[in-house]
Design a protein around this nucleic acid. Structure first.
Lengths: 348, 348
DNA sequence: CGACTCCTTTGGATCGTTCCAGTCAGCGTA
DNA sequence: TACGCTGACTGGAACGATCCAAAGGAGTCG
């Protein structure tokens, strides 16, 4: 001992302490400090305490870059955010981001946000981060567009978990977590049936939207199971307030429903507008249920009953699945389907 | 040449190529490849092309961890997200996050999200990331609570830029970017005055909210400058729909205003509810203006006119300021105040 | 023709951590 | 006493990039 640590003279006083600083202070080797941090059970109790004291005194925290380099992992999860989602999907995504950050922290990960330089390239951003080993894994959320991402990432051996089912390839091997939309609309439909409604209309998206058709099926199965008709009671339109408004006006004229189930809050708010136009009371005269439980659903006048996705739970399961992927644990099932709940408000 | 690269045999075929791989392929030294990436002007044109070809063939991208370790910088910006903000502030924050990710990318940075383990500690999360040199700088957004962060981060020499003024210490030296709330409400007030309104009411937050008082001042100065009265026309309440509804009912009864300017969309929607209760038409009978231009403002029935914060511009300026901070460039002014715009819709 | 530039390129050291092989002391057993 | 064995700790090498000083080559000039 007594050897001068060579690098100290040149160090700025403000720069954080290193493993070597702690080692010198505790009178042990660097490796022993490393073990104190990562494998405490390898140390004798008294040594451990001495090292821990030195760590506390100096306020030492391992340098991330050095650790990342050595262990070939960054403890970062990449999440690509779409520049601007349409309608209420944006709010859903934001609620998910919050939940994901929280769930990731519990597992020792941080969330790295990135966006697509070139929106036409499905792998834009992903590929660069992967090759630069800047993230350990991805959370893929933009799967609803006919996700080429999943397949492409799988090909490159990139670890990831998708929030959203592989609609176009139900047998896809990659792990995913999703919310059962049909169960949500079924919940909504049963809720309305329980309130005595028998003529319940559907306003959803165009037929080429698989998510839209899934949500629709919850409505139709709910009516069919009670022997009630669905024909003439469904409409498929764009996801805008104006479309919901028009579609509901037509349905009211032609099919006289007493309740509406909608594929989104945006459409449901369109229905509320139609009711207001006609002097009908939402909730009393005609019931309305939306989907997403957006902020707007809480703010509009009678309060909009809406299907709420369990995003906190989705985030937790996504992180759990990611841990499995990164440790190469085999999974019994690639997918996990969670059940939404219903936020009941004045509109029903 | 001809020397076998020692490390190749042990490398997994899937692991990304390194500087050494590129160097060997191009027949140059590692340093030359490094220069080709970072200081292209140092290379002779033909060498540069050869190296670039090798980089392209191998799909090389510098390893982030190694670069971070050597250069002592991570090219990451830390952003702490609050677990759950109240009301429409959450939507504002999310729009800002999107803009920040985009602006950061332009400057070669990514955004790292984190949240507070312990919400009572103002530096929770910040300190750890700083000591672990996990981020280069922070974007501090939660300054409206009487920001102890700014001072504490300044003390530790942490580079950061705040979105939000240092209300409690106007002379604070740290850089910040903010939106001029008073200018926004002034814009709203002038807009209503131009439409012929003379009795314009204010519904804002409690007096201890500095932001609320700032926004209020735009309304009061607008009226004073035209010699119109403000007394009896202002109300200060909680930021909820119910409060806005009650406050507007009282004001309508006692002061008979023909227009309302509100400190938030949440309050403005409360006003809309009161108008609907009384069979008054928003826009025709009574005009209403909100603040934040939230999604709900676009969805509610006549459309809510609202003050829109230029968050894209804020993000760009925050990143610009951060670049200045990190290169230790002196700043003429610590702060920058941006002017909002007005999104005019049916409610006015 | 040798000395002196200047420009390009190179090898070694380094950032701070973890992996790996090995040292050393202490203890039980023959 | 000699031997092996185990547990606690150590020193050197490695991860993959950049910084630094110095080497090599081409061109200029006395």
């Amino acid at each position: 001992m007594g050897r001068m640590p060579e690098r100290v003279p040149g160090r700025l006083p403000g720069s954080p302490p290193t493993l070597a600083d702690v080692a010198e202070r505790a009178g042990v080797s660097r490796q022993t400090v490393s073990n104190a941090v990562n494998n405490a059970e390898l140390l004798r109790p008294d040594t451990l305490e001495r090292v821990r004291a030195a760590i506390a005194e100096l306020g030492y925290l391992p340098n991330r870059a050095a650790r990342n380099l050595r262990t070939r992992s960054s403890h970062l999860l990449g999440l690509r955010i779409s520049p601007h989602l349409e309608g209420t999907a944006e709010a859903t995504m934001d609620r998910f981001v919050h939940s994901l950050v929280e769930a990731s922290r519990g597992a020792g990960y941080h969330v790295l946000l990135f966006d697509a330089v070139d929106r036409t390239d499905p792998l834009a951003g992903y590929d660069d981060l992967l090759r630069a080993t800047a993230v350990d894994a991805f959370v893929v959320t933009d799967t609803y567009l006919g996700n080429p991402q999943a397949g492409l990432l799988d090909e490159r051996g990139a670890p990831f978990v998708a929030f959203g089912r592989p609609w176009d390839d139900p047998g896809a091997p990659h792990p995913w977590v999703d919310v059962d939309g049909a169960a949500g609309t079924r919940l909504a439909t049963d809720h309305l049936l329980d309130r005595g409604h028998e003529r319940i209309a559907w306003i959803g998206w165009r037929k080429d939207s698989t998510i839209g058709e899934d949500r629709r099926s919850g409505w139709s199965s709910g009516l069919r199971d009670r022997g009630l008709p669905t024909s003439g009671l469904a409409s498929r339109v764009e996801d805008t307030v104006a479309s919901g408004r028009e579609a509901s006006a037509v349905l009211l004229d032609e099919a006289r429903p007493t309740a509406f189930v909608c594929a989104s809050d945006t459409l449901a708010i369109g229905v509320l507008h139609t009711l207001a136009d006609r002097g009908l009371s939402a909730g009393r005269d005609v019931a309305v249920v939306g989907f997403d439980d957006s902020q707007a659903a809480q703010l509009v006048l009678p309060g909009l009953t809406s299907v709420r996705q369990p995003l906190e739970q989705v985030a937790v399961e996504v992180v759990r699945a990611l841990e499995g992927v990164m440790t190469h644990q085999p999974r019994p099932e690639p997918g996990l389907l969670l059940v939404p709940t219903l936020s009941v408000r004045g509109s029903s």
